[in-house]
Design a protein around this nucleic acid. Structure first.
Length: 207
DNA sequence: AAGGTACCCAACCGCCTTCGC
DNA sequence: TGCGAAGGCGGTTGGGTACCT
């Protein structure tokens, strides 16, 4: 036995939005804002449930939404962020101005997921595995000596220019890394990381 | 030209979290 | 502190379209 959705119980409309409905919603929100989504449809005269209105506005009608093809930079950002955050689509989308969580999620499932999986399989066959990289945490930098962990990450990024190394980005985001690297200061670490990050990004761009 | 298949993406569903009383 | 309402989020679905045979 399945629960009847709220909009069906209340005789609300479902399915694709008409231009007229869009205009009503836009006009209402521009005039009154969207303080209470549940009350909005009634106030605006729409036969939709509040959730549906919220989703339509958030994913489609908002004026600051950037539509169209994802740029290479955006693709790279999604891949990197997904490595770190997992399926936190709203968090990922928050770092991509004008993109919605739904758009990012759809783009991931239709374009990036397969690509990343394919790259992971290829990577599993390389002698320098990402497990090795992930194992090289800040805590064992001291044991690496002069050949700091940075070199490891840089080596990996240049060897595998089409794949983002999770360890590489973890290292970039690790504020405490510098404290563990002998004569290197935090700012030196950051500069070096940034340098190799730029090298990596440039090498990953299609020519 | 027609039918089948794959892909894309808007929208829905249900669960979880947050908020207000 | 507990409870219900509302909002937010991620997973999934299904209709439309492009592509292939």
């Amino acid at each position: 036995m399945t629960k009847t959705p709220c909009c069906e119980r209340m005789g609300m409309r479902k399915g694709p939005w008409s231009d007229e409905e869009d205009q009503i919603l836009i006009s209402h929100i521009q005039t009154y804002g969207h303080g209470n989504w549940r009350a909005l449809p009634k106030q605006a005269g729409l036969l939709r449930c509040g959730k549906s209105c919220r989703l339509r506005w958030k994913n489609y009608l908002r004026p600051d939404i950037k539509r169209g093809k994802f740029s290479d930079e955006e693709e790279d950002s999604i891949i990197k962020l997904h490595e770190i955050l997992g399926n936190k689509w709203s968090t990922i989308a928050a770092r991509l101005p004008g993109r919605t969580d739904n758009e990012v999620k759809n783009f991931w499932h239709t374009h990036l997921k397969k690509r990343v999986q394919k790259n992971k399989v290829q990577n599993a066959n390389t002698s320098y595995s990402y497990n090795t990289l992930l194992d090289a945490q800040a805590s064992d930098v001291s044991s690496v000596g002069e050949k700091s962990v940075i070199s490891k990450y840089c080596l990996a990024s240049t060897k595998e220019p089409n794949i983002v190394s999770p360890g590489f980005y973890n290292a970039i985001s690790c504020d405490t890394l510098g404290e563990n690297v002998g004569n290197h200061s935090s700012s030196q670490i950051s500069e070096e990381m940034e340098f190799w990050y730029n090298v990596f990004i440039k090498s990953a761009q299609p020519s």
